[in-house]
Design a protein around this nucleic acid. Structure first.
Lengths: 165, 165
DNA sequence: ATCGGCTTTCTTGACATCGAGATACCGGTC
DNA sequence: GACCGGTATCTCGATGTCAAGAAAGCCGAT
């Protein structure tokens, strides 16, 4: 089955036969797939009354385990947004009662963001919904193929995640 | 080498051992890698005085071949943005003199967006720079692995690209 | 001919993001 | 015990995106 990137690559080979556009076969697919996933997620979450960005923050806290709290800085590295954005997100989530801000007892510059009970429930519900949707998307591949794909992607993401990026 | 998604999945298995979080091994990596790529591209393009969104539109027109023109609707399907966004992008590119708007001779509702000579040059320069950067990122993988990865990703993107999404 | 449904593009208002700078605080050094 | 580079968070203005709907024109069926 052909996809939009096949057409894109064919077009470049026709227009710029002097260039090696092989990298696009991988990385353009990554970008486009991510964009499709964003849209699909937005739909899935709207059934639970959450925006994708809300999900990202709430689940980061949920994963941290009891007492479900992290510093804004830790949330930054997990969600790949800037500090200004995170401040704004925490404000809005706090206003909705899904998280609360606490002073960090060991560092007076610092803040801890804690999930409320309602925030935790919402995160759990939305996660279950998301996993169902993602399983459906991945049904295109066999279990073995999914493992291979995960491994190959890990090789590309690891440098970004481990070197200060 | 471990990446952030390995840590994320391990955390979920600890916090929610009742859930099957295997889908995240693939799709969270896709989303996170796309985010890293966005940042890297922004840097690469800034050397050519272009924003990523400008690159997306200009190269779509460049790929179309002489006379380098497409309708806004065709640009939508290639760039995965909404129509309001595309109108805005065309406005700004036209103001910078990189594209121009022409009436579609065969459909009076329609418009054709055409690349100017300067727009074409800028697109060509930025593309070369992008490919260099992407080649460096993909050096983590062998030629064979890149082919496998492209093939697996195609299986996931094809349904989105071919069914009305 | 004309009606109604469908496309295509643009308009509008709300909103989330970024980047740079400001502020407060930490920890080690002299 | 005062300094100083580094760190953590927040503030602010500019900007890009989205969703929904408006306006204009196309086309097939009656």
């Amino acid at each position: 089955m052909e996809d939009e990137v096949d057409r894109l690559v064919a077009a470049w080979r026709r227009e710029r036969p002097d260039l090696d556009v092989e990298p696009l076969e991988v990385l353009s697919r990554v970008s486009r797939l991510a964009r499709h996933l964003d849209r699909a997620r937005r739909l899935a979450f709207s059934e639970h009354g959450l925006e994708p960005w809300e999900f990202d923050v709430l689940t980061a806290l949920r994963r941290a385990g009891t007492p479900y709290q992290l510093s804004p800085g830790q949330l930054l590295t997990q969600t790949l947004v800037t500090s200004g954005t995170m401040t704004n997100r925490i404000d809005r989530l706090a206003k909705k009662g899904l998280v609360e801000r606490l002073p960090d007892p060991s560092d007076r510059r610092g803040v801890l963001v804690r999930l409320t009970d309602e925030g935790r429930d919402r995160a759990d519900q939305a996660l279950a919904g998301l996993l169902d949707q993602e399983r459906a998307i991945l049904a295109e591949l066999s279990r073995t193929q999914r493992g291979e794909l995960a491994g190959l992607l890990r090789q590309l993401t690891a440098p970004f995640d481990n070197i200060p990026g």
